[in-house]
Design a protein around this nucleic acid. Structure first.
Lengths: 158, 158
DNA sequence: CTTTTAGTTCTATTTTTGCAGAACTATAAG
DNA sequence: CTTATAGTTCTGCAAAAATAGAACTAAAAG
């Protein structure tokens, strides 16, 4: 069902995802991304990851609420089959970066409160928030550049 | 010593920093960034943030070990005076972004294991790791662009 | 040598997080 | 109506994280 390599990747990717969700949810998401099987039932997830019913249920519902996964049903079968929702993942990735850059706003606010704007502290704060907001402005340009390049790559394939 | 606005910023910035360190350490760092006072002794930090000696000591040493803060001493005074080490902060920020992009390597590894490389799952994985590594390549260019712009800004000031 | 000071380390609590497993619910099938 | 299935929710526990405060240490001052 899962090779050793796949298991390792689930763990490693899971660690990245744990920033922002519980270990169980992180591994469920990693499983749906890594595996070759294109959908998993509740109990399959439960057994593969050796989780309890509650951990599985909570993890799945957490991921559903964030639109990171979705499910479909088969007629004459009560089970739900869960899959990764890759369509939103790029958006989520972009949002993740956006969030980090929210810190620049707090740094700008801090700067405004500074009595001595010429201190090293204030100067560096300006530099840092400057870099952050510069990056923030540049990112959409990068994304466009990539999309263009990516579209051409796809065309070539055909 | 600390205005209401400063206290709020310490809490808010602290929340960002808590990803990666204990709440106490996060607030100590935020304090050193936000305050107008340019250095703080152990006991000043302790009292302002209402921390225990151990929490203060551990927090300070953690931040020192990561080079996020530094200290100086005054002759005829045994205390250490701690300050934010802004010089490294930009480096730390860049490293933080680097780390996130490490996920792209794991996604590439995942892709290699995929039996069906034409599945939506595999395609999106390729797209995602592609975006990530593209961004990774573009970042140094952005940094240079910013540095150039920033240097000109500084020259104008003079 | 004794005392003071600044800070560290150790021990014990408290708080938080995460999960297991049982009890429960809702729905559909028979 | 009864039973089976799929999943949720509740209760409780265990491990980990974070902190408090006391005991301790190192070094300088007197």
């Amino acid at each position: 069902m899962l090779s050793q390599k796949q298991k390792e990747l689930i763990e490693q990717i899971g660690i990245y995802f744990e920033q922002g969700m519980q270990p169980a949810a992180a591994r469920i998401l990693a499983l749906l991304i890594v595996s070759d099987q294109n959908s998993f039932s509740f109990d399959e997830i439960r057994e593969l990851l050796k989780l309890s019913k509650s951990a599985t249920s909570n993890g799945i519902n957490f991921l559903l609420s964030l639109n990171k996964i979705e499910y479909f049903t088969k007629s004459g079968d009560r089970k739900r089959y869960f899959t990764w929702n890759p369509a939103n993942t790029i958006t989520h990735f972009k949002e993740g970066i956006e969030k980090v850059l929210g810190l620049s706003i707090l740094f700008e606010k801090t700067l405004k409160l500074k009595e001595d704007k010429d201190s090293l502290n204030a100067q560096k704060l300006l530099e840092l928030s400057g870099l952050m907001s510069f990056l923030h402005k540049e990112l959409p340009i990068i994304y466009k550049k990539w999309e263009k390049q990516y579209r051409q790559l796809k065309l070539k394939e055909k």
